[in-house]
């Protein structure tokens, strides 16, 4: 076989693998961005609840609405095969996700349900933030406990 042809063939064979690797990287980056956005809005609510940020009804409502919007996104779909913490160093997603896909999805639905109604629930004063945060944070924790690496 002519070397050039061999190289072309090797490249052609490798292309799907390269594409898959790029897909995997994109998925992990998207996940991290997704969590970051959740975190920024959770941080806003938590900061106001603790009094580190002055309570602002409009800002609290907006942060809660952002969380609702984020939980409408189908985030579990970003957890594609081959992107666990054992496949990629930058991933913190435990292989348990792929062993219990239904439960993992249910954990995300639980966050969506915790977020439902929160834009209205945070209105009316700083004291109303606590119960909302407990629900949202509890959903974060439950999923992190089972499916996030080392915690």
């Amino acid at each position: 076989m002519i070397p050039v042809k061999a190289i072309a063939l090797a490249a052609a064979l490798a292309l799907p693998t390269l594409a898959a690797a790029q897909d995997a990287k994109d998925a992990v980056e998207a996940r991290h961005g997704f969590m970051k956005m959740l975190g920024i809005n959770m941080g806003q609510l938590a900061g106001m609840a603790k009094g580190e940020i002055a309570y602002d009804e409009a800002a609290a409502t907006l942060a809660a609405a952002n969380i609702v919007a984020l939980t409408q996104y189908d985030a579990p779909a970003l957890f594609v095969e081959g992107t666990s913490s054992e496949d990629m160093p930058e991933s913190e997603a435990l292989p348990a996700i792929w062993e219990n896909p239904d439960d993992f999805r249910a954990s995300f639905v639980a966050l969506r349900e915790a977020a439902a109604g929160s834009p209205d629930a945070v209105k009316g004063g700083q004291g109303n933030l606590g119960p909302v945060l407990q629900k949202l944070g509890g959903a974060c924790k439950n999923c992190h406990d089972d499916y996030r690496k080392d915690d």
């Binding site: 975190g39 959770m42 941080g43 609510l45 938590a46 407990q134 944070g137 509890g138 974060c140 924790k141």
Partner: peptide, 8 residues
């Protein structure tokens, strides 16, 4: 910090 904003 478990990143849950309630048990920090």
């Amino acid at each position: 910090d478990p990143d849950d904003y309630i048990n920090v």
